[in-house]
Nucleic acid binder design. Sequence first.
DNA 1: CGGAGGTTTGACGTCCCTCAAGGTAGGTGG
DNA 2: CCACCTACCTTGAGGGACGTCAAACCTCCG
Lengths: 203, 203
Amino acid sequence: MSHSNLLVEGFMCRYLDDREGHRQLVAIHVPGDFVDLHAYPLKILDHDVATLTAATFAIVPHRTLDTILETMPALSRKLWFSTLLDAAMHRAWLFRLGRLDAVGRVAHFLSETNVRMQSAGLSDGRRFALGLTQTDLSEVCGITNVHTNRVLRQLREDGLCVFRSALVEIQDVPGLARRGQFDPDYLYIDGDLAISQQKRALS
Amino acid sequence: MSHSNLLVEGFMCRYLDDREGHRQLVAIHVPGDFVDLHAYPLKILDHDVATLTAATFAIVPHRTLDTILETMPALSRKLWFSTLLDAAMHRAWLFRLGRLDAVGRVAHFLSETNVRMQSAGLSDGRRFALGLTQTDLSEVCGITNVHTNRVLRQLREDGLCVFRSALVEIQDVPGLARRGQFDPDYLYIDGDLAISQQKRALS
DNA sequence: CGGAGGTTTGACGTCCCTCAAGGTAGGTGG
DNA sequence: CCACCTACCTTGAGGGACGTCAAACCTCCG
């Protein structure tokens, strides 16, 4: 592995396989995300990466990152920050799997994704197109695809959210967040412009 | 927050609270861990930190880290690496919660902790003292303390592991790892003889 | 038209939660 | 030394959330 990938368009995920080959997704990536920046210091990746839809990347050679680390401490810090944001999302996902029931997990994930999509300019705050099947969603939330289907029906009937193949429409943003005990603080969006600055600096 | 803490002795944890105040642990720290290094770039922490036992720290002022980042790229990279290791453990914990049943979760956690304790010089490869109650273990594994108790009984009856208040004794290291689908690669300890030996024993 | 991948629904089983009660061990004060 | 308290551990009974298995349906696309 001699380079890392900045996602420009489309959606990607990272996952771990269990013994039977079933996947547990550990991250979803939207345009603007540095998908595998952590592969640069780690050298070997502890998990797999896949595309969820057609996707395009900007390729950043590790030699470029070497140079940044040697000579540009401020930018280095921003790179570090972006991997820490990734870890903060992992923690929110742990909370989701450890403490929420199936409906709460889906509600939490869709609330999180809405905020991230909005910050990437891909949601108007209520509607966004996500290339996820119900099975993908199951692999995020640690439930079966059959049960995911029932959960989505309930969210629809409760007037919280409609998930139709690729299109997500949140009818009641605060209600969905409440159902999933979602609090966006961990996404570190307000105030800090680190992410958009980072993208500019690398392009 | 003007400093970060290096754990010297004792055990600590990091956790998130749900609405009713129930905790989901997202990390356990053993001596030698940099508990809240990520607080330095993040500035505000998205979760809480607590001691599990009496503990002592080395305090590292953030001004010292500033200097390191400005002038010592090689050491900076090591600091970055250590936060990435933290994220890799988060991912393993996600796998545990998303894909394993209760017995598997406990088996996975105890296997992971055994390896980490060994690498910290606190396990002989089978036995170690961990200051965790069954309730703490429940908050790691996302199950109730009542069910944790039943899980521990089963692990005992299956001859895999004995968990008695603070003392953990693994009777069957490869068996426990198999039950928890544990693979130590993500801990990035290789180079260390103990681990490659252990991996051989597991295969 | 047929096939593949995805969605939806039903019946039934089980893993884990909830509630409740009792047991045990260490610690403190009389 | 005993009485008691608190925190933790243990076990039972019953219920509910989610998994498993199976079948049908839908839609897109070749």
